[in-house]
């Protein structure tokens, strides 16, 4: 409230907000508890005992490492492609007004606006029509497509804040277009790109809906988890992997938040 800075809101509202946030966080915390349970066969609560034994077992599992390796590779390649395409698109859209500008922003956003299953099945039918065999690259094709929008959103927000007169000043002082890009534009947008890249990495690392259609027989880490969810083999290992995935995705999100928190639009507001 304007007139009373210290009034912290009605009790009912506080309670409802707190319960809502607890509802969002308790299930994730539960994952951390289950990663250390001694129970193997069921999801028994409360856990009969705690052990760190399963961390070692998971560490020695080659299938987990393979899935993790593929996931990291796909996420890294997709992020690089998305960074290039998203930045180009954002630069073009924010620099000038031209016919079809709205259509281009819509086209960029479409892959995450439509349900993922549509992207997935259309890619799959396109692969089968064009007779493209499944490989790492078919996964990358899908992932990069929806990662572009993440980078694009971050870059557009930053370009909007970057004053055009800086670029004109650089050109007036005799720098050519490439020098201007290297010494003026890039330093201005670098944190936004870094944040966008991290979010794109996190999104790709976690993606499962499109991936099931474009992976064929290969297993990314989310596909591995999905297998375990549908047909559980060794539950404690799944618990540990789930915990690791939570940690691995939280770090880039936190980093992206700190990189862009002073701006008018904080990274990650839209997924």
């Amino acid at each position: 409230m304007r007139f009373d800075r210290h009034y912290s809101g009605p009790f009912g509202l506080k309670l409802a907000a707190a319960c809502g946030l607890l509802f969002l966080h308790l299930p994730i915390l539960l994952i951390f508890v289950y990663a250390f349970t001694t129970e193997e066969k069921s999801y028994q609560w409360p856990p009969p005992g705690f052990t760190i034994n399963w961390l070692m077992v998971t560490w020695n599992r080659p299938d987990v490492w393979q899935a993790l390796g593929l996931s990291v590779r796909v996420a890294a390649i997709s992020t690089v492609i998305a960074l290039m395409l998203g930045t180009l698109c954002a630069a073009a859209v924010s620099r000038s007004r031209f016919f079809g500008r709205e259509a281009i922003s819509l086209l960029v956003i479409l892959p995450i606006a439509l349900p993922g299953i549509i992207t997935g099945i259309s890619l799959r039918s396109a692969f089968s029509i064009a007779e493209i065999p499944f490989s790492t690259w078919t996964i990358v094709l899908g992932h990069a497509t929806f990662c572009v929008v993440i980078v694009y959103n971050n870059a557009v927000a930053r370009f909007r804040r970057t004053s055009g007169s800086l670029i004109e000043a650089s050109m007036d002082l005799g720098a050519d277009g490439f020098q201007t890009f290297r010494y003026v534009i890039l330093p201005n947008i670098s944190t936004a790109l870094l944040a966008g890249g991290m979010l794109a990495f996190a999104l790709s690392f976690d993606e499962v809906i499109v991936t099931t259609f474009t992976a064929g027989q290969q297993q990314t880490l989310p596909i591995w988890m999905l297998e375990e969810l549908v047909r559980p083999r060794q539950r404690p290992v799944t618990n540990v992997v789930a915990m690791v995935v939570v940690i691995v995705t939280f770090l880039p999100i936190l980093a992206a938040f700190y990189l862009t928190r002073d701006g008018d639009q904080i990274a990650g507001a839209g997924k």
Binding site: P27, Y34, P222
Partner: peptide, 22 residues
């Protein structure tokens, strides 16, 4: 903000898995 962002971005499958446990 973080309290909303972290669950939003945390792994979809892990969230589903957590509910299977619950």
């Amino acid at each position: 903000y973080l309290g909303v962002m972290l669950p939003l971005w945390s792994s979809y499958l892990v969230k589903v898995y957590a509910w299977k446990l619950i």
